[in-house]
């Protein structure tokens, strides 16, 4: 099929990376911990790609991306636990369910809030993130299983290198193809000039909703993978800071640049986890002193985004 044909180079490259990783993992050189982080990099890249679709390509600013990541995680974990689907073979279905749930909620919430732009959209998505956090914190009232503010425990560990790899590579190729189709083109038109987009017949509302839902779908799938990797979920894993994490990756990697997001995701997780290993825990708090500084410096250095050639005044 053309899907695979057009992507054969990428698929070959991915297969190569997979073989190297698999050899490393099974040789016992790398610790369990590092293996987990390697898988986590894929998850973060997938979720950040979702934000890149929403913000980088379509220009819809979101400060609540982690909420959708969380919705995917809770959905999949809940399904697996209540239905007793403790098998790797059922995982694709629950991943999909997590993604669809996130995408669906994004669609519902997107109808009112995507009328907003820029900073107001940022605040509205931030507000939605808080709402979701409040929901997770009180989720034990709906079902004891969800755990509320104590956290969701005892989730089956189903995520492994293979499934993460296949799912991430597949969805990245899907994303690349959508981006280069008419839909991706319309998204970029909307980012560039919404009024002009409408004037040539682009249904901007629908296209923005589509980008937002699809981006959140990716976050949902990523969240579901996360749930079955770490087997424990806590509302604080999906708060504002997590959304900022994704935002930093998108900005670092360059808005509207999928390859950049992959590198940036790798770099970012490596950096954060590296600090965790290198620094004693009492200095670890310093991380969140430097990360915002980095963000500020990035904005001053390249206010139009990393990939842009425009500088300074405009």
């Amino acid at each position: 099929m053309r899907f695979f044909l057009d992507s054969r180079k990428l698929i070959l490259l991915a297969a190569g990376i997979y073989i190297v990783l698999k050899l490393l993992f099974s040789s016992g050189i790398v610790s369990e911990y590092i293996q987990q982080i390697t898988i986590y990099v894929f998850i973060v890249v997938l979720a950040a790609t979702g934000l890149n679709v929403i913000y980088g390509y379509t220009g819809q600013f979101s400060l609540g991306h982690a909420a959708f990541y969380g919705i995917g995680a809770y959905t999949s974990a809940y399904l697996v636990k209540t239905l007793g689907l403790n098998s790797v073979f059922a995982l694709p279905a629950t991943l999909l369910a997590g993604g669809i749930m996130a995408g669906l909620i994004a669609c519902i919430i997107g109808i009112p809030i995507l009328r907003l732009r820029d900073d107001f959209l940022g605040i509205a998505t931030l507000g939605f993130g808080i709402l979701v956090r409040v929901f997770f914190d009180n989720s034990d009232r709906i079902s004891e299983t969800l755990g509320g503010s104590r956290g969701f425990t005892g989730i089956a560990k189903l995520t492994n290198l293979e499934i993460t790899f296949v799912v991430t590579v597949f969805l990245l190729i899907v994303t690349r193809n959508i981006i280069s189709s008419r839909y991706g083109l319309f998204w970029r038109c909307i980012k560039d000039d919404e009024t002009a987009s409408a004037s040539i017949g682009i249904d901007t509302t629908r296209m923005k909703l589509m980008a937002f839902s699809y981006g959140c779908f990716l976050a949902g799938v990523a969240g579901a993978l996360y749930a079955h990797l770490y087997t424990f979920l806590h509302p604080s894993n999906f708060d504002f800071l997590k959304s900022i994490d994704f935002l930093i990756i998108v900005i670092l990697g360059g808005m509207g640049n999928i390859a950049g997001t992959i590198y940036a995701g790798l770099l970012w997780v490596g950096f954060i986890e590296g600090l965790r290993i290198a620094l004693p825990s009492n200095i670890l708090d310093l991380r969140w002193v430097f990360i915002p500084l980095l963000l500020i410096v990035l904005m001053m250095w390249r206010p139009y985004g990393l990939m842009s050639k425009k500088k300074g005044d405009g």
Binding site: F61, L295, I296
Partner: peptide, 16 residues
Amino acid sequence: APKISLLITAVGVSLF
């Protein structure tokens, strides 16, 4: 600069 760059900076200042 674009509005969003300013907002992101403001978020950075806040977290800092």
